[in-house]
Simulated assay, not measured.
Amino acid sequence: MITTLNRDLDTAVELHRILTASLARRFKMTEVAAAVLADEIAVEIRNEVGGSELYIPGPSRTARNRLICEQFTGDNHEQLAKQFRLSRRQVERIVSNRDIRPLKMSVAG
């Protein structure tokens, strides 16, 4: 039987795991240092929203796609796929659908 206490504990453990992995990856921290900081962040989150449900929306695809297009060099599909956790095919679709506007040329006159 799953109790509320077990579910809450599972959620807290998962939050800590996500925070630790994200801090280590994003800020190139050791896992130990990231875990210590994750503890502090988790405590602050619990103090702010503990006991209530919190919806965290996913990242904006528009913003992500814009970043991918800005970083695309013509031959870095694999690197972008890894960086943004997408397949190579998804990166190909994103860069092929980018808005390519003609350069504005000023006419002297």
Rank of each mutant, 00 (worst) to 15 (best):
V13W: 04
E14R: 12
E14V: 11
E14H: 06
L15N: 01
L15I: 02
H16F: 00
R17W: 02
I18Y: 01
A21H: 07
S22C: 06
L23P: 03
L23R: 01
A24Q: 07
A24T: 07
R25T: 14
R26V: 08
R26T: 14
F27D: 15
K28S: 10
K28M: 12
K28G: 12
M29V: 09
T30V: 06
T30F: 09
T30K: 09
T30E: 11
E31Q: 13
A33Q: 15
V36T: 05
V36W: 09
V36L: 04
L37Y: 11
A38Q: 01
A38I: 04
D39C: 07
E40Y: 00
I41C: 03
A42S: 11
A42I: 05
E44P: 03
R46H: 08
V49G: 02
V49D: 02
L54G: 06
P57W: 07
G58E: 15
G58Y: 06
T62H: 07
T62Q: 10
R64D: 07
R66D: 10
L67K: 01
L67F: 09
C69Y: 00
E70T: 04
E70F: 06
Q71R: 13
F72R: 09
F72C: 06
G74Y: 10
D75T: 11
E78C: 05
E78H: 08
E78Y: 13
Q79P: 06
L80R: 11
A81Y: 14
K82T: 10
K82D: 14
K82I: 15
Q83I: 10
R85F: 13
R88K: 11
